[in-house]
Amino acid sequence: MSEEFRPVCMICERECDEHEGIKILSQFICTDCEKDIVNTNVDDDLYDYFVEKLRTLWLDIMRTDIDPPPGTPYS
């Protein structure tokens, strides 16, 4: 019997229950950290930590030119 897969939160690096969080691209953010992100403003100490951690989400993406999505104020 194989072990149940437990995703690791990219923010708190904790092994989580697979249903307790969101998957964005190849990363996982647990519900607690998602709530913390929503309730943190730029003046909080935690903010810079979130910015640093979320950079990894974009590592493989930034080399590509991206047009504004259709139906947005920028298209």
């Binding site: 249903h19 998957k23 964005i24 993406i61 504004p68 999505p69 947005t72 920028y74």
Partner: peptide, 19 residues
């Protein structure tokens, strides 16, 4: 539903890059 939030976030990431 987490999967719904995840999809809504993921499919709007282009907006983040553009802005």
């Amino acid at each position: 539903d987490e999967a719904v939030r995840a999809l809504l976030i993921e499919r709007n990431l282009r907006l983040v890059v553009y802005i």
